[in-house]
């Protein structure tokens, strides 16, 4: 009984139930919704969002917050594409991915120095670096979109895991890029649960003071977290450009609130120490559903933002309110 209630009180369960309700309602209003092509479309739409969300979750677990990751993604993606187009058009796609991740990690290191080194408040720092990365990109690197992306990147976007034809003759497919989301989830899971570094990230989020006392290298761990988010942002950026087959420097920025929404819905707490990959992925799934399939439920797409906002408020308000009541009950 209590176990049931405990499970019901968890964000993961709530989000899963909402997703289920959404899918059922959408299927009832349009039977075509529940089909392989729709699911593959949703999976495709969750690649970039998912990779970014995994990074943000790691930051939240460590007790920080990052809003600059979209700017890092755009910066890394655009610079890499420009670099490839201008100097090495024949670099294989994995080379491009490595370059983009390296650029992302470097920018993440800047956040890391400011946050771990100077101990500045993470929200305000990353708001500042968001503006810096974006401003630098658009001022000094370029502000025009690159539509002739290198053929290697285009080839990557054509690599499909599954491909098929519907009864009505339309195509559906799932690109190999999806495997990167899976890979990122696995790597992050290994780091978080199978290494001391991961345990240290959770420990810092649980109590910085205790972490210092038992001898955890707090600053080094925080620095790693921001570098890691940066690298993941770089990866998400280059995948985005490959799949869109265009590098638009204005893309991605503005997505940060949706990503944070997904992570917070999945149960990660702003105070740090709490967050699961399952929850994050469920949160991503819900946000992707809302962003792509709201219309199926008969809600106009213009209400998308309201729905996401309300979801954030409910998803974070419910636990906060419960915690407040529990605190007043416990005296």
């Amino acid at each position: 009984m209590t176990r049931w209630r405990e499970a019901l009180g968890r964000n993961e369960t709530l989000v899963a139930l909402v997703i289920l309700a959404f899918v059922v309602a959408a299927t009832l209003s349009d039977p075509r919704f529940f089909s392989i092509p729709t699911m593959m479309d949703l999976a495709r739409a969750s690649i970039v969002l998912g990779i970014l969300a995994v990074g943000v979750m790691v930051v939240l677990v460590s007790g920080g917050i990052d809003v600059s990751f979209t700017a890092i993604a755009a910066f890394a993606m655009y610079c890499t594409t420009l670099l490839l187009v201008t100097y090495m058009p024949d670099l294989p796609w994995y080379g491009a991915f490595a370059v983009s991740m390296a650029i992302g990690a470097t920018l993440g290191a800047i956040n890391g120095i400011l946050i771990a080194g100077f101990g500045l408040p993470t929200l305000i720092v990353t708001l500042g670096t968001l503006a810096i990365f974006r401003g630098f990109l658009l001022t000094f690197v370029g502000s025009r979109l690159i539509s002739n992306i290198p053929s290697e990147m285009r080839d990557f976007s054509r690599m499909m895991i599954v491909r098929g034809t519907n009864a009505d003759g339309s195509f559906y497919s799932l690109p190999w890029a999806f495997a990167f989301l899976v890979g990122v989830v696995i790597v992050t899971w290994v780091i978080l649960y199978k290494t001391m570094l991961g345990r240290a990230i959770f420990a810092i989020g649980g109590s910085v003071e205790s972490a210092r006392r038992v001898g955890i290298a707090v600053r080094r761990t925080q620095f790693f977290v921001y570098v890691y988010v940066g690298a993941l942002a770089g990866l998400a950026g280059i995948i985005h450009a490959s799949m869109a087959r265009v590098a638009n420097p204005f893309d991605l920025v503005g997505l940060e609130l949706s990503v944070i929404a997904a992570v917070v819905l999945g149960g990660a707490r702003l105070i740090g120490g709490y967050g699961t990959l399952t929850g994050t992925l469920l949160g991503v799934a819900l946000i992707v559903l809302v962003r792509n399939s709201l219309v199926v439920l008969g809600i106009p797409a213009t209400w998308q933002m309201v729905v996401i906002g309300v979801l954030i408020l409910i998803g974070t308000g419910l636990p906060a309110w419960q915690a407040k009541r529990a605190a007043s009950r416990a005296a």
Partner: peptide, 13 residues
């Protein structure tokens, strides 16, 4: 080893 009054534990672990 010092055990402080607040125990310096990690509540989430």
């Amino acid at each position: 080893m010092v055990i402080f009054q607040d125990f310096s534990l990690f509540p989430n672990l």
